[in-house]
Design a protein around this nucleic acid. Structure first.
Lengths: 119, 119
DNA sequence: AGAGAAGATTGACGTTTCTCGATCAATACT
DNA sequence: AGTATTGATCGAGAAACGTCAATCTTCTCT
């Protein structure tokens, strides 16, 4: 379980050493904290939720009315989620579409899963 | 607790891919964000990790050397985790012992659990 | 009652975060 | 070329956060 952190890219990617794995290092704690920090805002939680329910990538212009935030602020939040590898960005002409990285989310669920044996 | 991820539903497609309707409310988003906020710090992640591996409740005095923080700061962090229901506090004489609320962690894991729909 | 010890709380200070309006870069359409 | 339009970035101000030293508060033991 603790090896999940080692196999990630040099770039920040969502995932993770389980919070329940034995003796995580300061670095690992920091990586995990960074991911939680990205989720530690009500607007970003809603973004993730909206994307989770969306069958396809969502355009930035759709987030603004949903969240009631200025365009620059929406970009700010999307960037935070992107930075930790929770989201994916795709450019289509003038528009930017964002989608959830489902596997990152799944690995995040494992972070909280308690296991007795680590084989 | 609010379920973050729901089953994927087909949504009408317009100019910019409208977002689906079954969102979580602002209140629910705020509640979730508060929990993530409690975990959005490397020291608090380590506290949870240490508690997850401890067979018994842990004394405050044990956290200080582990985290390398002043006593007041440790209390500050423990209070944050306590406030969102992740920890439990038990007074034993002069000492205060903290332990993890395992069920709270398990429910947190469910927040990320994806019910995959057939695309 | 008085002395000690553990831990919670307070006050102060520097850092980070969120927000908006404004600007900039890139793409699309006349 | 010229003009919109989308979205990223910048600058600034307000609020929230993390930290420590100092100060309670509570409990224990003489």
């Amino acid at each position: 379980m603790a090896r999940l952190l080692q196999e990630i890219e040099p770039a920040p990617v969502a995932c993770c050493t389980p919070v329940v794995s034995p003796d995580i290092s300061s670095d690992q704690a920091q990586t995990l904290a960074a991911i939680f920090k990205a989720l530690a805002d009500q607007h970003r939680v809603r973004i993730v939720n909206l994307l989770a329910n969306a069958p396809e990538p969502v355009c930035v212009c759709d987030f603004m009315p949903q969240l009631g935030l200025a365009q620059g602020t929406v970009s700010f939040h999307l960037k935070k989620l992107l930075a930790v590898g929770l989201l994916e960005r795709e450019q289509r002409g003038t528009w930017a579409y964002y989608s959830l990285k489902r596997d990152a989310l799944n690995r995040l669920a494992d972070v909280f899963t308690m296991k007795e044996a680590v084989a």
